[in-house]
Design a protein around this nucleic acid. Structure first.
Lengths: 274, 274
DNA sequence: CGTTTGATTGACACGAGTCAACACCAGTGG
DNA sequence: CCACTGGTGTTGACTCGTGTCAATCAAACG
């Protein structure tokens, strides 16, 4: 089940390549990393595999022996309910990993992880992670920040599902994914890849696929988004954010985004660190 | 605003007292702790304050300079929306702390924390936390596990709010709080303290206070719970868990609960660790 | 080319929100 | 002692957002 695709060591050796590596880009945005740190991160994700869509990477209940880093494509953490419905609790975009804390601490998975689109993922063995964490304090620090970020994203999605209407909920997700992809350099000026089906989008947002369809049409009719050919286009990010009630501060993005200039954090004044 | 109640150093010195300390009880359930670790934890929560109900401990957007440990009473993490509605993302019961990762890493609060009932809380200064984490690997390990647990609880609540009907959602929360209180020795044989108003319960479950009231009556009529005088009584925990679809595995409780004997994990076969 | 998967549309049902009114209780102050 | 108050719980009538069911259509696919 875990053996689709060829295992191929793909190691980027130049500084140039390391900087373009999704994991390096993400973690460098969380905490300062030395060149040695970055090299270690690239080495950590040496064993890359192509995985078809809709394949489980990790199952709920199993012991955490391996983590996965998503390099290309979208994956998702999910839980199944007795009645067969699925709740996707978080999307994994390039640069994101499955629960590294569980891997480090030797816990058991309390959720499953599956690819949504076709993905390129890197398998991270437990020993390799522990070795890197022991020898690279900067990486350990960045990963702690990632764990904090993950909880933050979960809280915000809880707010979305609990308190926002379907249209805003969906817009909010679009804004979030756009921002997260932008942070790893995978968002264009006005949009990004969007491989999810409407059914999968419903599993993220807790909406039926029928209702997802209707809401999408509302958003399209309002000119807020264009969604076709597995691609999301946002003509006016500011307008979509305003409609969704999206403020990116919960994403704790330290690096400046290319897509957004001066409308971030308008509600909350910036405060110096330390 | 932070000056209600007297700041009083309350240090338990005997092993007996340390074992009864909520934080020690909780962390000892997450990872093995030495006596020295436990003493350090008790010292960490030396500065205890009484806080009236409905007081903010931390505000959204402020820098994390101090964390709080709840010793008595219930508190909650929440976010406010532009329309004034509130979503409580997590309850803090005795033994729980506000986000220690944010404190350690010097981040900013992406959510607020407020007392719900009257509370006794211990303020944890940043330097004290860093000192303990540096010198007590066991504590650091236990706190990492707590962070993992917190994310796990958030995921499960996401599933609850997204996919469970109001009756099951509420029952599930009752089961969870009962289990969490049991883990720190604060649940009786058949129930626990329940200081939340119906409105606050609605803010946790994303239900209107009117609907909370109706759902409560259904659960009462079904004989699943008794809720009166700020106290929750569960005549038959097994029945409530079955009704709610509650399985405690996501709480990663290593210590055996007193309340539950042999009916845990009936849906999912147990899997040996390591 | 049949099959399948995903998108779309309409009719209808139902869970939960909203609004409004009232009961109950604990303070609180005259 | 009692009127007044505000917070909480309770109830009913009505509205509305979403789910469910079912049918159709388009595109991908073996």
């Amino acid at each position: 089940m875990l053996n689709e695709g060829a295992t191929a060591p793909v190691v980027a050796r130049t500084h140039e390549a390391a900087t373009r590596h999704p994991l390096v880009r993400k973690l460098a945005g969380m905490a300062p990393l030395s060149e040695v740190d970055k090299t270690a991160l690239v080495a950590l994700s040496a064993f890359v595999r192509a995985v078809p869509p809709r394949q489980d990477l990790l199952q709920e209940g199993e012991a955490a022996e391996t983590a996965y880093l998503v390099l290309q494509g979208f994956a998702g953490c999910y839980k199944l309910l007795p009645d067969g419905t699925r709740q996707i609790t978080d999307l994994l975009v390039p640069g994101d990993t499955t629960d590294l804390n569980a891997l480090r601490l030797g816990g058991t998975m309390d959720h499953a992880v599956a690819t949504l689109s076709a993905c390129a993922v890197a398998a991270i063995p437990r020993v390799a992670l522990l070795e890197v964490l022991d020898n690279h304090a900067g990486v350990a620090r960045a990963l702690s920040r990632c764990a904090m970020l993950e909880a933050s994203v979960l809280r915000e999605r809880l707010v979305s599902i609990g308190r926002r209407r379907a249209e805003q909920r969906m817009s909010h997700l679009f804004c979030e994914v756009l921002a997260r992809l932008g942070a790893v350099g995978l968002a264009d000026e006005d949009g990004c890849e969007w491989p999810l089906t409407q059914g999968e989008l419903g599993d993220v947002l807790s909406l039926s696929n029928v209702h997802v369809n209707r809401v999408l049409q509302h958003l399209r009719a309002a000119g807020l988004i264009v969604l076709q050919d597995k691609r999301l286009t946002v003509p006016d990010v500011v307008r979509l954010r305003a409609f969704a009630g999206f403020t990116p501060n919960y994403l704790h993005l330290c690096v400046p985004e290319r897509n957004t200039q001066d409308h971030d954090g308008a509600n909350i004044p910036p405060h110096p660190r330390g």
